[in-house]
Amino acid sequence: MSQVNVTINGEHIKAVEGMTILEAAREAGIFIPTLCHHGHLDAYGSCRLCVVEIGEGERKRVVASCLYHISEGLVVETETDKINNYRRIILNLLMHRWDNIPVILLEKYGAKNHSRFVDNMTYCILCGLCVRYCRDVKGANVLGFVGRGTIRQVVIFPNQAAKYCPTCCPKEMECLHYCPTGVISSQYYGSRPADGQKLPHAHPVCINDDVNILEILERVGHV
């Protein structure tokens, strides 16, 4: 892999070609906030908190740093007024799904509760980390997405859970550790599906194989 020269926030950095901007920045100790990124999983690009500006002058544009691959001579800025303002708006929006966003992020970008937004406090920001981990790394398919657009959500498939969750890491449920919001509750430690107890679930509802999925979709927003 060849080395390329990139400039991040005015700093000249050597990085390996094929890296994303996010990887190169982190390697150089430059902070870029993310909520849907995890080194073990393919980049997904859903939270958009990692947006940065690339290029110069007229050709400046906004890209998601977790997805954009660096090339020789790339100029990146991670904390311009524009970018920080966008991050503030994104955090403002997310606060209406999850009111526990780390204070450090909120303070850094000046995000605060917005009185004109409507609450949809599901505590799940649909970053998909749990689903992607369960599906792509473990091949277990216990978790999945249903619905699209504003009613999209994460649900659990109990039959799969009964089969696979007991074979996951014996000490703890791994999906829980990928979840940035902590919505997959830790109350399920020690009372795993194999014990015939409740299942770990992504808030607000879990899917029961006997319940039709449409009913669940209808309940979104009422829980």
């Binding site: 939270c47 994104i90 929006l93 209406h96 799904r97 409507v118 949809n120 649909l126 619905g147 504003t150």
Partner: peptide, 19 residues
């Protein structure tokens, strides 16, 4: 209704603008 719901700006942004 037609947004896929994957990314935050589109999903949450449209929701709040619509509201």
């Amino acid at each position: 209704d037609e947004s896929c719901g994957k990314c935050v700006p589109c999903r949450e942004g449209i929701t709040q603008m619509l509201h």
